[in-house]
């Protein structure tokens, strides 16, 4: 009993923080099930009868288009990032050569570079090579800015793989290229998961490059699409809340399925940066 009482402040604090972090979500989902007039008359109450009309409205618009765009972009960019970063990390972590340290430093500096500093030249470059307003035009910048953290994670991980492994493979007459893909890469699975999760979240939610490098609803990603809804639905607050809920759902679902992995991936991704 005494123990219970002594824990009261802990519970109080926990619940206070629960309200702080969770209440906005609750309001968002709650409002999304209401009718417009119901929201106007009593914005706080629970919905009288759960209405999916707002969700139907969102699906009638280009939501699925935006969703597909974001998914394609994130998957392609993440796969490319993994291939390029893992390959570059192989000599950087396991071979001695003069430029090793400078090249590694060049990659790590990327962690602090504001995206805005590269925005204008990338905008001009993308227009020049004819990729303006295309999904393909976004892949380059996404991969480039995902490389620093990915190279750091991969090199850290590869340093711990015993060197004997490739020495014996070399003696068997296996070239570096085959050695890397056949023997080293399969051992990287945990690092690949970390890199994939970390970058997927970043790219899925990315905003500024998509804003500057595309301008039609054909190429809009989910974050841009949500702004579209915000403009289109204007006074239909429950409609906007339904769009926001749907837009946030994918990552939340993935999170509840693979919680431990995501949490670990995020922690590893940033600490090592």
């Amino acid at each position: 009993m005494i123990k219970r009482i002594s824990q009261m402040p802990l519970y109080l604090l926990s619940i206070l923080l629960l309200l702080f972090t969770g209440l906005p979500f609750f309001i968002m989902v709650n409002t999304s099930f209401k009718q417009q007039f119901e929201f106007m008359s009593s914005p706080w109450s629970l919905p009288e009868n759960f209405s999916f009309a707002n969700y139907a409205l969102v699906f009638e618009s280009s939501f699925l288009k935006y969703f597909t765009n974001s998914l394609i972009l994130a998957v392609v960019s993440v796969v490319l990032t993994i291939v390029l970063a893992a390959m570059a990390s192989y000599p950087l972590s396991r071979m001695k050569f003069k430029l090793n340290r400078p090249i590694f430093l060049l990659f790590t500096v990327g962690m602090m570079i504001p995206i805005h500093t590269t925005l204008i030249p990338i905008y001009i470059l993308t227009s020049k090579i004819g990729l303006y307003d295309s999904l393909a035009g976004l892949i380059g910048p996404y991969v480039a800015f995902a490389l620093p953290v990915s190279v750091i994670i991969f090199t850290q991980f590869m340093k711990d793989i015993p060197k004997e492994l490739e020495e014996s493979a070399k003696i068997d007459g296996c070239g570096h290229f085959r050695l890397f893909w056949r023997i080293i890469f399969p051992l990287l699975t945990p690092a690949v998961a970390t890199v994939a999760i970390y970058n997927f979240i970043q790219i899925w939610n990315e905003f500024i490059f998509a804003l500057v490098l595309t301008n039609s609803s054909e190429t809009a990603t989910l974050p841009l699409g949500l702004r579209e809804f915000y403009g289109e639905f204007s006074v239909n607050v429950p409609g906007i809340m339904a769009a926001l809920t749907l837009g946030s759902l994918p990552l939340l679902l993935v999170y509840f399925v693979a919680q431990e992995k995501i949490v670990k991936g995020l922690a590893a991704g940033s600490v090592k940066g």
Partner: peptide
């Protein structure tokens, strides 16, 4: 091994800063 990553990074990040 390094060139593909370095080219992408070089074009979009390093070159862009100079530009």
């Amino acid at each position: 091994f390094i060139a593909p990553a370095l080219i992408v990074y070089g074009v979009y990040v390093v070159y862009s800063i100079f530009m």
